[in-house]
Each structure stands twice: as structure tokens, then as C-alpha cells.
Simulated scan of single mutants.
Amino acid sequence: MVFLSRIYTKSGDGGETGLGDGSRVPKDAARVAAYGEVDELNAVLGLVTANCPDCPGGALLRCIQNDLFDVGADLCVPQADGEEPGKGLRVVAAQYERLERAIDRLNEGLEPLRSFILPGGSPAAAWLHLARTVCRRAERSVVTLARAEKVNPHALIYLNRLSDFLFVLSRVANDGGKGDVLWVPGANRDG
């Protein structure tokens, strides 16, 4: 499917890049920004797994990294009018449904929240909170793209579920929520 014999082509030296359908667009196009932020999210998840090998859900995180390449591939190829379902590589409902099942399973053991959580706690939780915020940014970029061009709605749903999953997993990584750092509204207003 992929064969790279040369890493640099010089074809992007003028500020354009090629999409999966062969068309060329500026490197700051909304579509390129969207799949670029998905790529950044994938890199953050790589940092989670590299720096926190005992992170709960490590095997699922590696599966998610593969899914994120699917999301990027989906976004890299504009949907053609009348595109036949299953013809190209597109994110499907089963991918985010797996995340929903994981969220439900992991959330069962957590106490309900009575405060917002500050990013932090254990190193794994802190990395997962960073991944969650990058995921939300990627999601916003896909929403921006979807306002201008046709986008597979499953790709957007996947990112939305993934940010929820990363939040829940961060709580699990904080000793099942016991190590969560809670927000105390106005705690430092009086000096």
C-alpha cells in the first residue's frame, strides 16, 4: 500500500502539498491542518506509550494510533460526490464504538466527578491530558473543514469519542481517580 524510496521530493518547496487523490493544495489549507493535527495527536500518544510503558490501556492506545492513521488517510482524500461506501479507506462506526465500550468499562470503576480536574497527577495522566487537548484541537479543525468541504462524519465522531476516552483513561492512570488534581474555584483570589 505504501512504498517510500525517497523521502524528499522538493514538490512542496513552493508551499503546496499533494492530497491522497493527487490534487495539490496550499500547505495551510483546512484539510491539511486537520490531518496534520491528527498526526500531532498520534505523536503525543507515542510519547505516552514510550514514557509510560505501564500506562493502563497501552495496547488499546497502540490500536488507537493505527486508527489515527486511518483518520488521517480519510481526511487526506476528499470525498467525491456519489462515492461508493467501502470504496476508499474511511473511518467506520465500529472504530468509535470500540472506544465507547472502553469508556463504559473504564468509567465503571471511577467515582463520579464533583469538580473539574486539573491536568496532572501521575506522569501518564499528565501525558493523557495533553493528548486529550490535542485531540480536541484536531476535532475543532475537522469541524472547520466540514463547514467548507464534505467530510466523513465518522472521522469527527471518532475524534470526539477519543477525547472522552483519553479523559477517562487519565483518571484511571491517576490511581482510579484517587490521584486526580481537583480544581478549587477561586482558591487563590485572596492572596
Score class of each variant (00 low, 15 high):
79 Q>S: 12
80 A>S: 14
81 D>Q: 15
81 D>V: 15
81 D>I: 15
81 D>T: 13
84 E>C: 07
84 E>H: 04
85 P>L: 07
85 P>Q: 02
85 P>I: 08
86 G>I: 11
87 K>C: 12
88 G>I: 00
88 G>S: 14
88 G>P: 12
89 L>S: 11
89 L>I: 15
89 L>Y: 00
90 R>D: 05
91 V>E: 01
91 V>S: 05
92 V>M: 05
92 V>Q: 14
94 A>M: 04
94 A>E: 15
95 Q>K: 15
95 Q>P: 02
96 Y>H: 14
97 E>C: 08
97 E>W: 01
97 E>Q: 15
98 R>H: 09
98 R>K: 13
99 L>R: 03
99 L>M: 07
100 E>S: 13
100 E>I: 06
100 E>R: 03
101 R>A: 13
101 R>H: 07
102 A>T: 03
102 A>Y: 01
103 I>V: 15
103 I>A: 04
103 I>H: 03
104 D>R: 02
104 D>F: 07
105 R>V: 09
106 L>K: 00
106 L>D: 08
106 L>S: 00
106 L>T: 00
107 N>S: 15
107 N>D: 11
108 E>W: 00
109 G>Q: 12
110 L>P: 06
110 L>S: 06
110 L>G: 05
111 E>Q: 14
111 E>F: 06
112 P>Q: 05
113 L>E: 06
115 S>C: 05
115 S>D: 03
117 I>H: 01
117 I>V: 15
117 I>T: 10
117 I>S: 02
117 I>N: 00
117 I>Q: 01
118 L>C: 10
119 P>C: 06
119 P>L: 07
119 P>G: 10
119 P>E: 11
119 P>N: 11
120 G>N: 03
120 G>A: 01
122 S>C: 08
122 S>Y: 10
123 P>R: 11
123 P>K: 10
123 P>E: 14
123 P>G: 08
124 A>H: 02
124 A>Y: 07
124 A>G: 07
124 A>W: 02
126 A>C: 13
127 W>S: 05
127 W>M: 14
128 L>P: 04
128 L>H: 06
129 H>Y: 10
129 H>A: 04
130 L>P: 02
131 A>M: 02
132 R>K: 07
132 R>P: 08
133 T>Y: 02
133 T>M: 00
133 T>L: 04
134 V>S: 04
134 V>M: 03
135 C>E: 00
135 C>G: 06
137 R>Q: 04
137 R>K: 11
138 A>G: 15
138 A>S: 14
138 A>P: 08
139 E>V: 13
139 E>Q: 13
139 E>W: 08
140 R>F: 10
140 R>P: 07
141 S>E: 07
141 S>P: 00
141 S>V: 00
142 V>L: 08
143 V>P: 02
144 T>H: 06
144 T>M: 06
144 T>G: 05
145 L>D: 01
145 L>M: 08
145 L>V: 06
146 A>L: 04
146 A>R: 12
146 A>D: 04
146 A>M: 10
147 R>I: 01
147 R>D: 13
147 R>K: 14
147 R>V: 07
147 R>C: 12
148 A>V: 14
148 A>F: 00
148 A>N: 12
149 E>G: 05
149 E>K: 10
149 E>T: 08
150 K>D: 10
